[in-house]
Design a protein around this nucleic acid. Structure first.
Lengths: 235, 235
DNA sequence: GATTCCATCTTGTATATACAGATTTGATTC
DNA sequence: GAATCAAATCTGTATATACAAGATGGAATC
């Protein structure tokens, strides 16, 4: 048995989802709904508050409650950790470390991290395999101040992404996807013929302390990224 | 001046975001927080309810309130409508309709729509341009029952995506991205040399009545998709 | 007709109370 | 020591009340 609040939420959201109440349309006042559902005003109030938080309603003090405009749809790609992605697909993740060093980066790159050109950055290049099949080249730059143990980490045992998630949980970033061709070296590492079509993802993530990491992910063009389409989250 | 509830929400979420309260850790009980903040229990209750709805807390009846585990991060790509995407980038959208017809689709395609092999599907191929430059080929199949006017629509004036958004607002779907090479025909339409690298997005969206539309979007590999990284939404 | 002002309606916030229902804790009992 | 049971603790829900503050509409006034 649902609570009264849940019943009201269900009833109202059904009217909205079914299209019987259209965006912009005004709902009854709390007093009216209170009479309709036979509950107290506060119960209606809490139910509508929750619908507002979920993005179904907009409420205006002194005026009333209105059906919120339809939210735009977005595509959501959940697999940011290559290890989790491979394991979710039933594969066994393995990694080959090609580079793990402190290097002086090209000036524009160091600039992106807010560091001088003489400050060394941590650089890692890792080939990720699923059951022996090359899946992705990870070419990552990292501000070593934000992950001091980066040089001593065994990258065949844990991913830098996983480490970063555990250490610096709250941050945001941006990502770009494009298609390109593999260089001879990249093709060799990925087991492709030279000039093969590849999918390139570039990511930069920030925390409050600045840019944490920048990474270029290269995978064979035949592999595909899988996402889902859903209404954008409120906020 | 924030409300008391907002102050409590701000104070608690700050403790969580800063890491002073770690995932799994127990917060004080409503009674304790009531004393700490000098408010009534219900005020604390409503504040924590909201934090729970936002995904910061997990509350267990009889036990207490606990900091929720860190949400996984996802990549979010907001531009599903090519027209909006072009205009957001400051360009002028224009379209060239290459195909707009009712066709008998290949059996596996018709099957995806839950229709028999003898049921015609609406098929549209549209080249989208930004200021005269080809940006994307849209190759779309659509269940005509769900958009009866599809044959009479002027696709140079409005996009099928926009139409669908307006008519069938609530639905979900999935999307796949891969890299490929353009066929001779596609390369010609996009103004690329034959065999050029391209980015291919395939989308299928559903409503309660079944599959609404399936679309293949092809754009030059040099163009890139831009998204952002953020914690996954609750639910 | 245009403006001003007030009564009324609306949602927002805070509080107190009461009881339900799940969990935890501790004492009792075997 | 282990099991059982009861009390205390904690969150969930519903209600009533009171007042604040924005929005609206209509009446009174100019």
């Amino acid at each position: 048995m649902d609570s009264k609040r849940q019943q009201i939420i269900g009833s109202l959201s059904e009217r909205i989802n079914s299209g019987r109440l259209k965006p912009g349309e005004r709902l009854g006042s709390e007093s009216e709904l209170m009479a309709e559902f036979g509950v107290s005003r506060m119960t209606v109030h809490h139910a509508m508050r929750e619908l507002e938080a979920r993005g179904f309603l907009e409420r205006r003090k002194g005026s009333g409650s209105y059906v919120a405009p339809a939210r735009p749809y977005v595509a959501i790609y959940p697999h940011l950790d290559i290890r989790a992605e491979i394991e979710a697909a039933g594969g066994v993740h393995r990694a080959r470390v090609l580079v793990q060093a402190l290097e002086l980066a090209a000036p524009p790159l160091a600039q992106g991290f807010g560091l001088g050109a003489d400050a060394p950055l941590f650089h890692a290049v890792v080939l990720h395999l699923s059951g022996g099949v090359p899946v992705e080249i990870e070419d990552r730059w990292l501000n070593p101040a934000l992950l001091p143990e980066c040089m001593s980490v065994d990258l065949t045992r844990e991913t830098l992404f996983g480490l970063l998630m555990a250490r610096r949980p709250f941050r945001a970033g941006d990502e770009r996807i494009r298609a390109c061709t593999a260089s001879d070296e990249e093709a060799a590492v990925l087991g492709l013929e030279p000039g093969a079509v590849c999918l390139e993802t570039t990511r930069r993530t920030r925390s409050d302390e600045g840019v944490v990491t920048q990474v270029r992910l290269l995978r064979p063009g035949t592999s595909h990224l899988e996402g889902r389409i859903a209404p954008a989250a409120r906020d």
